[in-house]
Nucleic acid binder design. Structure first.
Lengths: 223, 223
DNA sequence: GCGTGTGAACACATTCACAGCA
DNA sequence: TGCTGTGAATGTGTTCACACGC
């Protein structure tokens, strides 16, 4: 999860700022709604949507209420309409070109992952420093040297980078990314990065997720 | 993050139950402490540890206080000692053998990821249903048919499975996993799984993480 | 002085419960 | 009747501020 606040700088402290927890549920709602939409389901009530995801009906309604009035009393929410609304809120109604930094084991897997494109994220360039992968082509993209990053960012008007290098190389890579003019980093390296506060950061640490699971299993065992 | 509570069933409602947010920070503390330990740093104060991770000193102290008194007034916390304590709390002071379910693109990457082993998680078996990978060997492990799961679980006394199959196959795979006696699933498929409440679930949806990042960038842009 | 542990105060998030609309 | 939108009440998590130990 993001270390930074998900919300814009609180310069004046007046706006009714959306809680970060709400934003993360928005993605879950979107995923479920897209699933319903594919199943030809036209509308859904807050209680059913909540049940599917493990939330209360009140929470579902309140979450949406932060952004406007999308529901129809007596009916519920129209799936397709709500999908569009959430996408607009998240900013994923438009395509996001992204650059992949690091083309090792994890990087190559992310390149092959079809799930990004489905939500509007297109990997349009790949950079690395390792001789072994430089100039090679993966999924139709030739790996360029990380020095090229500034021009790549400009050329594609990139805002977001996916960082998938070894832990030891992460800090330096992050600095290069920031200097290239990127404003958001999805970090897979198990290191706490320091970035300027105008740059957003989301961290995914797979070992940490397993630790959380281990703890949970551990608890449920001796009740 | 887990859909289930990270905490044991609230059967009687008396224990001072640890907030799930605390547990997720525990993993972050651990990562940072291990980093400090490798840098020969013997002790650390709550304020410095907090600053490194973006938390307040009070929060750091309160988090640890849920589990006991680990600090030394005037000194701080001894890194090595605290590492051991946190590992004991998370349950990662012992090795956790895990089974990987799904050996496609993502599964193979996870198999090659060295970060799991570093925290005590060993992938000891791999299962799938796809003819193309069955019987093949990856990272020294031969892919077995998912039907074998029950005996594999028993043989290695497995508690945890990593689920990395395509979305369409996830629900069925999860059911097989549950039936095989596993009590925790780390799910990489972008689907909401339904599991018995004695089974823990942690979800990692990479597209969702990118959505969160997109939103954050989107906000920071028009201030 | 420095730094922990902790009750009390505060801020934030969730749930309740009901008015109002289709 | 069914379901949304929302103020009020509750519950949970975070920060403050200070007593105490090194």
């Amino acid at each position: 999860m993001s270390i930074e606040d998900s919300i814009s700088e609180d310069t004046s402290g007046r706006e009714p700022l959306v809680p970060k927890a709400v934003v993360s549920r928005l993605s879950l709602y979107l995923r479920e709604l897209q699933h319903l939409h594919r199943s030809e389901q036209k509308t859904i009530s807050s209680s059913k949507l909540g049940r599917a995801l493990g939330f209360t009906a009140a929470q579902v309604r309140k979450d949406f209420a932060y952004f406007g009035q999308f529901g129809y009393p007596g009916i519920g929410y129209r799936c397709e309409e709500l999908i569009d609304q959430i996408k607009k809120i998240l900013g994923t109604d438009k395509k996001w070109p992204v650059v992949l930094v690091g083309c090792g084991n994890m990087g190559q897997a992310l390149l092959g992952y079809r799930g990004f494109a489905k939500q509007g994220f297109d990997v349009v360039a790949v950079v690395d420093v390792d001789e072994n992968v430089l100039e090679k082509t993966f999924q139709g993209l030739k790996v360029e040297h990380i020095e090229r990053l500034p021009e790549i960012v400009k050329r594609h008007e990139l805002k977001v980078a996916i960082l998938a290098v070894p832990a030891t190389a992460a800090a330096e890579a992050a600095e290069r990314i920031v200097k290239s003019g990127i404003s958001g980093i999805l970090n897979f390296a198990p290191v706490t990065l320091t970035v300027p506060k105008n740059v957003s950061l989301v961290e995914v640490d797979l070992a940490m997720e397993l630790e959380q699971l281990a703890f949970s299993v551990f608890q449920n065992q001796q009740p």
